[in-house]
Design a protein around this nucleic acid. Sequence first.
DNA 1: TAGGCACCTATACCAAAGTATAGTTTCGTC
DNA 2: GACGAAACTATACTTTGGTATAGGTGCCTA
Lengths: 205, 205
Amino acid sequence: MPNILIADDHDLVRDTIAAYLETVDDFHVQTAASLDDALTKMRGLDAVDLLILDYNMPGMNGLAGLDKARGQFPATKVALMSGVANRDVANSAMANGAHGFIPKSLTAVSLVNAIKFILSGERYFPFDFGTGDTRAKPSGAFATLSDREMETLEQLCIGLSNKEIARNLGVQEVTVKLHVKNVLAKLGVSNRTQAALLAKEHQLF
Amino acid sequence: MPNILIADDHDLVRDTIAAYLETVDDFHVQTAASLDDALTKMRGLDAVDLLILDYNMPGMNGLAGLDKARGQFPATKVALMSGVANRDVANSAMANGAHGFIPKSLTAVSLVNAIKFILSGERYFPFDFGTGDTRAKPSGAFATLSDREMETLEQLCIGLSNKEIARNLGVQEVTVKLHVKNVLAKLGVSNRTQAALLAKEHQLF
DNA sequence: TAGGCACCTATACCAAAGTATAGTTTCGTC
DNA sequence: GACGAAACTATACTTTGGTATAGGTGCCTA
């Protein structure tokens, strides 16, 4: 029976997940409320097969907690779980050797499947995470852009200057400035670089 | 026993995979050498649970073949397999409703795991596909950046202004300007937005 | 110890980016 | 025909970004 340890500082979240896992399949699930708590418990337990760490939890300190856990227990698979992390965090976690990234938006059955997948030696990453949901919503903000503003944003995403954009769109530079200003305001960012980054993040171009 | 149909025009590839799957687990595996061949066979067979299509195969015509298969057999899960496709193709496949994308670089055990994963109702996508190689190379240009220049670039990638970067790094704004200028020159780009985009593209931050 | 390199600062200048306000045209809709 | 929205232009302005030159420090190495 696989040993699983779930560390999350939200009692409700942690305990309901644990309870669910125990009923639905043949898992032995322990819980902890912080990273240190988790590491302490692991020393007193039989070998833990899978350690699930909440990204926002006392002691985690970003991805440092992941490294710490992996360093102390090289034989244990470690997965990161988060309800808020963006794709960059998730990618970094995987790059840092995590065995899986579990968004809290996962369905219960998918969670079980993901856990089995990891326990079988694979590394789990929800392929559409950070793109699926973000692409689905041209998140309000993007939807408010007019056609011309969207074209302007597209040019921003190649890193062009106002002058170059003006030439490409066949308008005056002042006009481009206006469009850019509107884009920045609508997206709630403070300069063109952030606008480009945001659009890229949302896979718009 | 799950029914699997593998369609690939390379006999060796197809048959060895099929043979392996039959020995290693409880799969019933059929094979086909083209898309039309596969669709014809499916009409004469019991319900096929998983159809694995080679991306480069007679009749596929890019992702059109995927749509065709999904249209004719809505109840069958369809995965795309390829040895050469890039990440864009893979993403498009998933966006078009494929239940999985299987690069031929996968190990045999991973293939089995992926298949089980798909059969359990999940959608399989190798998380590091198409990025592994790009992340590996801090490609020449990036390697020439000094520590400080790299830190500066990191801040550029959040869309910060010189002033903000100066504050974060604890230096004067002029110094940041110097670093930025050097970064632009070394990366061969003409402004900060392009630098940020380039770094993001190479998965640096 | 002399040179090279990374790092920091300073002054100065021009170009580009961004803001503000005001006005014209076009187009579709009420 | 009135109206609003989107697109475009104009003038004018401030802030930020990027370039150039010059010089100071510390660290490492030939």
